[in-house]
Write a protein that binds this DNA or RNA. Sequence first.
DNA 1: ATTGTACTATAATACGATTTAAGTCTAAAA
DNA 2: TTTTAGACTTAAATCGTATTATAGTACAAT
Lengths: 197, 197
Amino acid sequence: MKQKKIEAILSTAQKMFGRYGLQKTNLEEVAHMARVAKATIYNYFENKNAIYKEVLKTEADALLNKISQSVSRELSPKDKLTSFIKAKFSHMKKSVNILKVIKMGRERALIEERMICEYLFEKEVNIIHSILYEGVEKGVFHINNTLLSSRAIGESLRGFELNLSVRDNSDNFKNSLNELTQIVCSGIMAEKARLKA
Amino acid sequence: MKQKKIEAILSTAQKMFGRYGLQKTNLEEVAHMARVAKATIYNYFENKNAIYKEVLKTEADALLNKISQSVSRELSPKDKLTSFIKAKFSHMKKSVNILKVIKMGRERALIEERMICEYLFEKEVNIIHSILYEGVEKGVFHINNTLLSSRAIGESLRGFELNLSVRDNSDNFKNSLNELTQIVCSGIMAEKARLKA
DNA sequence: ATTGTACTATAATACGATTTAAGTCTAAAA
DNA sequence: TTTTAGACTTAAATCGTATTATAGTACAAT
């Protein structure tokens, strides 16, 4: 029962925040739509910001899960990395609140928002790192400092986030992203593995 | 004489816009600081936005010039590309108004601001493209679609722009950027050239 | 070509009045 | 025990209006 209520609150809050943003979202309305009393909301959450933070966190974790799943379906490290990038951007569209934060720019971002972005980034880098590490172990990747490389790749993908829901031609975006994937893969693959591909 | 005045106006406007932003910058004050009558400003510029646009354009062109110069000092395509990236980020710190726009996020950016960012990006991609093309011609780069690759590299660098004046450790930034440079270079270099390096 | 000044009109600001909504509390219902 | 409706307090958002600042113009003088 408890859990059901909490989920109802979070999922409607997610929609409302996504549509109207943190400020313009009315908790009274959220309560009504979630078929819950306002007091119940305050029974489970400190305040509005806490709900917002939880929504962002949930979105981030959902995204990370989707990515991890996609990655784990692949066998070769190269395919894992490719799948990471594909999954990240295809599932990111659903993370409406996170997307909003990214589009807004850090300048006026709340501490909660920045923290979640940082969290998401670090986790992504972790996943990339595990892929690179495995690649090196298997001898298909040739990388001196896997930690540094994973950060670098993570950062390079940030540029593409900005163009997610903004940009001109969607094909243009996909092509650029695929091309970068190719370049990066070639860039870190060991000679022998590279010649085979 | 004419040119001197225009330059005075633009350079003080650049400082003022950089400090206070478009809105909070007072043209009367700009006129005074540039030792020019307000009427003179309106003799050379349509309106405030036009000055702002010109300031942004000037910053962009200055940056592009610096980059081009740095690139042209190098001989090998690989060094040119490396130098491009280095120059872009080291000189970008001086483009205060452009940096401001980038940090703010597109959401609330004026059309003028977006256009300049687009312009800068396209020009950068052009430079990258000429480097890649030369590299392919010389046989040191192995790239199928140089145009696509240059866009991809351009986009990947965008992620780093966000961290220019924002981020934690500056060394961290430099290291990541260097690492990406390495990866990209390896990724596009032909086998023989790669083995030599 | 440039300036100073005076001018207009519009946009920014300030501020008090009003409304909205966050957050609390309680007593009753489930 | 958890949940609810509703009353309540208080802080913030909104609104209307008065005020000010300043973008932009016009012009006579240099």
